[in-house]
Computed example of a mutant assay.
Amino acid sequence: MLELAFPWALAALPLPLLVLWLAPPRRETVQAVRIPFFEATSAGLDKGEGAVVLPRTRAQMAFAWTLWALVLVTVAQPQWVGAPVERSEAARDVMLAVDISGSMHTRDFTAPDGTRGSRLDGVKSVLDGFIAGRRDDRIGLVVFGSAAYVLVPFTRDTAAARALLATLEPGMAGQNTMLGDAIGLSIRSFEASKVEARILILLSDGTDTGSRMAPAKAADIAAQNGVTIHTIAVGDPDASAEADKVDIATLEGIAQATGGSFNRAEDAAGLAAIYDQIDAAGAREGATTSWRPRTPLAALPAAAFVLLVLVAYAASLAVARHRRARRREATA
């Protein structure tokens, strides 16, 4: 749709008529000497039109009005207004802290089709759908094993987050489980967040093995910074191997200290249901801003003005040459 940024500029269109009415051309009669034999005494002189005011043709008037209209259109700043574009602000910042320690390769996670797979593969398949469903949230991803790392800073680029999630393998970050360090790193990621709703979803299948910051202390700091932690136990608390056991008490304490929830996930369907509960409990709609892109078009009438002036100037030069040539032929 075409719009004018300053449509009031077109009100000046009749201004030349007002000028002609209030300030008509100056006309003055003066005495002069008429010389009948001027042609004989003016050899070599270029005779002009004198003070004769030549009449303006309709074409000349139309050309002048066209130039004046182009000037006003340029001042009015025409612009093409595109279709509305909407952008929603982030409603929440959701950080996913995923345990990728060596024990996550244990094949005791039940897929929707009933087959058994590794714990990490099951978590990744459900997380992929959870991330894909983020519309009004920013998503982040922290992975931890013997150390914690930020794999995906807060972003609304869910495609990139899903692509990086797919690359995870058990043991990539070491064999141990640093729960406290993962929480601490997540808290640091929230420091630059300007969103009030800050959620950390912590998935682990093991017991903290020597974090620099104890999980309970990290949970207290998270609560002070307005971060709600939902913990999900993926492992078996009764596993025979000590490394495969999940510390239920610690995960429950972390969730309770921050006002979050603790859940156990033994299969994909249960894990998906947990995500739905967490999502529904803190669901918010982000503020939506709308605008229409505007493309300025003032350069077009300005260019047309310049082009017409150049064409008129070239035409006037051609007419002047033609007249001079005819005069030379007449005097020859």
Rank of each mutant, 00 (worst) to 15 (best):
L2D: 10
P7K: 02
P7T: 13
W8T: 12
A12H: 02
L13M: 12
L17V: 12
P24L: 08
P24N: 05
P25L: 06
P36S: 10
F38R: 11
F38E: 11
L45S: 13
K47F: 13
E49G: 15
A51F: 12
V52N: 06
F63K: 07
T66S: 15
W68C: 05
V73T: 14
P78A: 11
R87F: 07
E89N: 13
D93S: 04
V94E: 00
D99S: 07
I100P: 07
G114Y: 01
T115P: 10
R119W: 05
D121C: 08
K124V: 13
L127C: 10
D128V: 02
A132D: 15
V142H: 09
A147G: 08
Y149W: 02
A159K: 06
E169G: 03
P170E: 06
G171I: 08
M178W: 02
D181F: 00
A182L: 01
L185I: 11
K194D: 14
K194N: 13
E196Y: 05
E196R: 11
I201F: 06
I201P: 03
T207A: 13
A223L: 09
Q224A: 14
I229P: 00
G235Y: 00
A239M: 11
D244V: 05
D244P: 05
I248Y: 02
T250G: 07
I254A: 01
G260C: 03
S261F: 11
Q277E: 13
G286A: 10
G286D: 06
T289G: 14
R294D: 06
A298Y: 14
A299T: 10
L300Q: 12
P301M: 03
P301Y: 06
V306T: 13
L308C: 07
L310A: 15
A312G: 15
A320R: 13
A330Y: 09
